[in-house]
């Protein structure tokens, strides 16, 4: 049995209010049967310095990614991971994390690849919980292992691979990286090291909407009205558009994917997790440098 959906004015305006809960909702529901709270951070040690009481850690690098292939875990791997964390197919899973839930949204997106039905984000993430002076714990919660069915990953609906992005050219693309990455001035995030892309720039015709625009000062998502001004107004998306979002390795664009899919209600949104570390290294794909979006090339590159 899923836990009740949080009902408030802000969330009611979103397309899928059932995908968000507030910090107070989490505080009130901690310990509820069938609720599993997960922390997903960029910093692998952050959880251990103190976390929401009863929350378990999920690590994007060691647990959600396959160790050998550049890919996510498979159905068996996911089932084993869920079972070890005491999650059943019916559990309500609430994920929160550092940096405005950037890595939390990434984890939620991976859960969605496996069709886990009730998975939500805690609006504002770890920082808001702490800013509100709520309790932190360093206890390691005791987990009773569960059974989780082996569900084959369904990539098609929400994940785009390079050939699909090439075929998508001409339809809306959102580049969620920083302006410097978009223009090609740099191939990595400000303050982050080079991450091995041989070319800088963006995919032709992609609109630049840095992911953090969707987050308010306190890390919560902006209101529906504000989000519409950003994505429908500035970026020029139209309701019903088929959209692909990308960044550097697919984590920041998971945040934007969440906004487009669950808050604004776009039916068809895919995250291109190969992102710039694939596109910027691929042979023969078209790239645009500078601030202009650029035209869709007629030949669409030798790879098409």
């Amino acid at each position: 049995m899923s836990l009740p959906v949080e009902s408030n004015e802000k969330y009611a305006a979103y397309a899928h209010p059932e995908r968000l809960v507030s910090t107070s909702w989490v505080a009130e529901n901690l310990g509820a049967e069938n609720l599993v709270v997960l922390e997903s951070d960029e910093d692998i040690l952050l959880y251990s310095t103190g976390h929401v009481p009863g929350a378990l850690k999920i690590d994007w690098h060691t647990e959600l990614n396959d160790e050998i292939t550049r890919d996510y875990v498979d159905g068996e791997g996911f089932a084993a991971l869920m079972a070890a964390k005491g999650i059943t197919r019916e559990s309500t899973v609430v994920i929160y994390g550092d940096k405005s839930n950037w890595w939390a949204a990434y984890a939620l997106w991976v859960f969605t690849l496996f069709g886990h039905q009730d998975v939500r984000l805690m609006d504002g993430g770890r920082d808001k919980w702490i800013a509100e002076g709520r309790e932190l714990s360093t206890d390691k919660p005791q987990v009773e292992a569960t059974q989780y069915p082996v569900i084959e990953r369904q990539d098609a609906e929400i994940r785009a691979f390079l050939p699909e992005v090439l075929a998508h050219l001409g339809s809306p693309l959102i580049d969620v990286r920083s302006t410097e990455e978009y223009t090609g001035e740099r191939t990595h995030m400000p303050n982050y090291p080079e991450e091995g892309a041989l070319r800088g720039g963006h995919i032709p015709s992609a609109a630049s909407v840095p992911w953090a625009k969707a987050a308010a000062q306190d890390g919560t998502f902006r209101s529906r009205e504000e989000l519409e001004a950003i994505y429908l107004g500035d970026a020029g998306l139209k309701p019903g558009d088929d959209v692909v979002a990308y960044c550097r390795i697919g984590e920041r664009s998971s945040h934007t994917w969440f906004v487009l899919k669950h808050l604004l209600g776009f039916e068809s949104v895919r995250n291109y997790d190969g992102s710039w570390t694939e596109w910027g290294n691929a042979v023969g794909v078209p790239i645009v440098r500078g601030e202009a979006k650029g035209e869709v090339p007629a030949a669409r590159g030798v790879r098409a």
């Binding site: 910093d43 692998i44 040690l45 952050l46 251990s48 310095t49 550092d98």
Partner: peptide, 9 residues
């Protein structure tokens, strides 16, 4: 900062 334990480590 304390919110960067890996870097501190």
């Amino acid at each position: 900062p304390p919110e960067a334990p890996t870097t501190r480590g």
